[in-house]
Simulated scan of single mutants.
Amino acid sequence: VRFGSEGYAVEELVAELAASFLCADLGVAHDQRDNTAGYLVSWHAVLKNDKRAIITAAAKTQAAAEYHSALQPAAGQEA
């Protein structure tokens, strides 16, 4: 997927949402990047052009977050 393309914007939206979900789940502070405004512009364009894009992104985000959560050791166990 090419940088700046709609597909790239969707991938970045999924990555950012997954990072937010995982940080919240793990109790880790999620720092915003300096380029967040630029990403917001590209996400807005995608969401404006495709009313179902947020549903697709949310489904992919859930799958990514669940995958990464499954990699965490169970409570009380060390890696």
Rank of each mutant, 00 (worst) to 15 (best):
F3G: 10
F3P: 05
S5A: 08
S5Q: 08
Y8T: 02
Y8S: 06
Y8G: 06
A9V: 01
A9D: 00
E11L: 07
E11T: 06
L13N: 01
L13E: 00
L13D: 00
A15L: 15
E16R: 08
L17S: 08
A18F: 00
A18G: 06
A19F: 04
S20R: 02
S20Y: 02
F21C: 09
F21I: 14
L22R: 03
C23N: 13
C23L: 05
A24G: 15
L26Q: 13
L26G: 08
G27D: 03
G27L: 03
V28R: 14
V28E: 13
H30S: 11
D31V: 15
D31S: 15
D31Y: 13
Q32Y: 10
Q32M: 09
Q32C: 11
R33N: 05
R33S: 14
R33M: 08
D34N: 09
D34T: 12
D34L: 14
N35Y: 08
N35F: 14
N35H: 15
T36R: 14
A37G: 08
Y39V: 12
Y39F: 10
L40E: 05
L40Y: 03
V41S: 07
S42I: 03
W43M: 09
V46K: 01
V46P: 01
V46Y: 00
K48Y: 10
D50T: 07
K51S: 12
R52Q: 07
R52L: 12
A53D: 04
A53Y: 02
A53M: 04
A53V: 02
A53E: 01
I55C: 15
T56L: 12
A57V: 03
A57W: 00
A57T: 00
A58N: 01
A58T: 05
A59Y: 08
T61W: 00
Q62G: 09
Q62W: 05
A63L: 03
A64K: 11
A65G: 09
A65N: 02
A65L: 06
A65E: 01
Y67V: 11
H68P: 02
H68F: 14
S69D: 11
A70C: 02
L71I: 09
Q72E: 06
Q72V: 10
Q72R: 09
P73A: 07
G76E: 10
Q77L: 15
E78C: 14
E78I: 15
A79C: 12
